[in-house]
């Protein structure tokens, strides 16, 4: 870890008319750090994630990102072309529903290769070799490289989506409920994979989840949100083992024990 953060968010707010999406969010994210944003449905965590990934523009506040050349850029002042370029090179976005993040009608290999072609790679052999490499890293066999994602099972579809996002070596990945809607054994394998990738590649990630177990496994730090506000933040283990805010205590005690 370096002594300079990767992302600086200050007083970020998003209002939908008079309704609060999220309000007055301030935090720093360091390189290689995984931050979990937890909270119940409607707490504003996805709104916050969409604002941070510039898919939504906030009502007020700023977010600055340290580019690869060390320059700080304010995200909401960048041109759309620059933001979209950032989105497909230095960032990744893993959707809860793989159909939102994948092209379901082109093969898994082309899905992974799309970002390479978007940044100007024009050598088919190299693109394919990279796709094979990345699909194997997310544990997809080489003989499925030419299959369309819609022929994959629900749990398996997350894998090409992850590979597709990581192929350009991003430094920051946004994940929106990456294991939502999967059964527990598939979820466990996927979490294992994600944890391995994040550690190996030194990725910084912001993971939105309502599942505290996901937060515990993946993240070093977490923020608990309720009604658009951050009610508690800190190291994941501290927050989960010693929750201070009443809402966090409720959340932690609501976990079902088997």
């Amino acid at each position: 870890m370096t002594d300079e953060p990767l992302l600086r968010v200050s007083a970020l707010s998003k209002f939908y008319g008079s309704r609060v999406g999220c309000e007055n969010i301030t935090f720093d994210l360091w390189p290689g750090e995984v931050l979990a944003i937890v909270g119940e449905s409607g707490s504003g965590k996805t709104t916050l994630l969409n604002c941070l990934s510039t898919r939504l523009l906030p009502s007020s506040g700023t977010a600055s990102y340290r580019m690869r050349d060390g320059q700080w850029r304010e995200l909401y002042r960048m041109s759309e072309a620059e933001r979209r370029f950032l989105m497909r090179t230095d960032w990744g976005f893993v959707h809860q529903n793989p159909a939102d993040g994948l092209r379901m009608t082109v093969s898994a290999g082309a899905n992974v290769g799309e970002r390479l072609m978007a940044v100007g790679d024009r050598h088919y052999g190299n693109i394919r070799a990279t796709a094979v490499d990345w699909l194997s890293r997310v544990e997809i066999d080489e003989d499925r490289i030419d299959d369309e994602p819609r022929s994959f099972s629900g749990g398996m579809r997350q894998r090409p989506q992850i590979a597709r996002n990581l192929v350009t070596g991003p430094r920051l990945v946004f994940m929106d409920e990456p294991t939502g809607g999967l059964d527990v054994s598939v979820q466990a394998r996927l979490l294992d994979l994600l944890r391995g990738l994040v550690t190996d590649l030194g990725l910084a990630a912001i993971v939105v989840t309502h599942d505290l177990a996901v937060a515990r496994l993946l993240s070093q730090r977490m923020m608990v949100m309720k009604d658009g506000h951050v009610v508690e933040s800190g190291l994941t283990d501290r927050v989960l083992d010693d929750p201070r805010a009443p809402y966090t205590q409720l959340l932690v005690s609501s976990i079902l024990q088997v």
């Binding site: 082109v106 290999g109 799309e114 072609m117 978007a118 490289i145």
Partner: peptide, 16 residues
């Protein structure tokens, strides 16, 4: 924005 990576996805699919 001159984002034409997708066009090569089609050609990639052809070759694959």
């Amino acid at each position: 924005l001159e984002e034409y990576g997708l066009m090569h996805v089609k050609l990639y699919e052809d070759i694959a």
